[in-house]
Design a protein around this nucleic acid. Sequence first.
DNA 1: GATCAAGCATGCATCGAGCGTATGTCAGAC
DNA 2: GTCTGACATACGCTCGATGCATGCTTGATC
Lengths: 310, 310
Amino acid sequence: MLDPWTLRVLVEVARRGSFSAAARALSMTQPAVSRQIAGLEKRVGVSLFQRVPRGVRSTAAGAAAVDLADEILARLKAMEVHLTAYATLDTGQLRLTAFPSVNSSFVPAAIRRFRAAYPGVSVSLTHPDPAGPLAAVRAGRTDIALLTAWDLAAPVDGIELHRLLDDELLVALPVGHRLAGRKRVRLRDLRDETWIEGGHPDCLGPAPQLADGLGSAPQIGFVCDDWNSKQALVAAGVGIALVAASAMMAIRTDVAVRRTHPELPTRTLYAAAVAQPFQTPPVAAMLKMFAMRTKQLDTSEFPAVLRVHE
Amino acid sequence: MLDPWTLRVLVEVARRGSFSAAARALSMTQPAVSRQIAGLEKRVGVSLFQRVPRGVRSTAAGAAAVDLADEILARLKAMEVHLTAYATLDTGQLRLTAFPSVNSSFVPAAIRRFRAAYPGVSVSLTHPDPAGPLAAVRAGRTDIALLTAWDLAAPVDGIELHRLLDDELLVALPVGHRLAGRKRVRLRDLRDETWIEGGHPDCLGPAPQLADGLGSAPQIGFVCDDWNSKQALVAAGVGIALVAASAMMAIRTDVAVRRTHPELPTRTLYAAAVAQPFQTPPVAAMLKMFAMRTKQLDTSEFPAVLRVHE
DNA sequence: GATCAAGCATGCATCGAGCGTATGTCAGAC
DNA sequence: GTCTGACATACGCTCGATGCATGCTTGATC
């Protein structure tokens, strides 16, 4: 295997025209250079430099060798730079997995911030894995998976969980609904309503508490994956739905969102990622972005939330 | 400097999907592979392989690294092959320097044989160096310079001289010349002739002996570099000239070439090249070609020579 | 569920490639 | 004629990579 250091010596000798000068330039001694070149010449079986009184002169083979070596050294350097770029987030990729209700505003906002900070890293956002968020991370199918507290069974080793947000659960009604005028809606008053459930289990919230508040199990009228369709169904008066406060950036004007009484427990949002030693720089950076987002989470960033208090 | 051996390990690990398998394939131990990869990862600051129970899986950076490494390793191999090709004469170059009279047949024949044996080596043929053949070789301006015996002053150190040919000197006359019918021409009978001298001093031969034979100094009528023009001048009856037997392949039919009486001393042809330790393979090969040529030198290869004996 | 096998990481001793110092030799320069 | 600059070689040493032994974790199997 040709040693790059030998190639480095080779090009320096060709450039300087002398072993001694090359040695000085490379902070080594002249005998070391002499041996390097001699070894290379012995290896390829051809003289690369003609020894002349003033120093050395490239032979035809030597000149060709210098050209090839220059090319290779440049590529080695480029490889190192390219790989280092992964550490400095100048390049790389990040795969996110999240479910519809956080995809409406929370995740896109984080991605926007991430992209602004690290434009070289390509971010992809995929739908939830059938095997669950933790399994998806564990199997390496995604880098960060978002999940809510009640997805969380036993904490899995090798997976880091980051608490991102305590998300308030609200009820979405058509603006013309009989209870839409209230600041808070009594859950008990909703016991006869038809509920629209999201495709993801998180989208209906903690069923036991909801059932307790209603006084009976909610009547599920529709199951609908798509957040837009869900809103449209609510607006059309087909039914009512639970929504998370963090998703209210994308709320329609013909849908009213109201707090409940009693309040439903907050839904805690977590990010799951592989644990520290094997965490890639983009993952760590995105987790920081999420954390930063949490700190700055206030009602001013969610103008739609204000409408809750109308 | 990125070590090629590390790159080799890198691609092997990626190909096999496991440190242990890569170690077996590379005839080394698993800890060695582990440390190679760990060192590379530490160096570029990014994880290249994700450690999974079955073995390892490339990260995005790892996959990119493997592609780059593959490219570099291929180029390193190509470089080694290319340089080795200089030793095996699959490529290279050879610069010859020779004067017109040997360029008419002797040198072209040798070049033809050389090219047939080593088609990858490019041969160039240049005109004599103003500083002389030995100086040209010594200064590295040419690889092999041809010279005749009387060019040879003191033997120069670092230069090898190879005796190639003892070349007979003959006289060229117009076919209609009064002496063209003889098998041999008495030099004395030519004392009143006008001589055409070649641009190169060798082309008139050893002046003292010629003057002795003629009985007086030859009258130089023309000086002409070009061998074809020289022949044409002889054919036109402008004058007569000396020619070397080895140049008779290219003789015109309206020029008669005759031996002289007394015979002129033979002109010995030498090849000068740098001495052994720094001799390139093409030079050594061409010297062999010249030597082979010498052995096979007989009249059957010079049909024109036969006409001397007519 | 307990053992087993496979695979990666780490500590320790060893070996060798490459280096530096010292020295020899040779060719120009003044 | 001496002197300087440049390359080659011998010798001793250092440091980095390797191999061996070991520990740990995970998945498979009975």
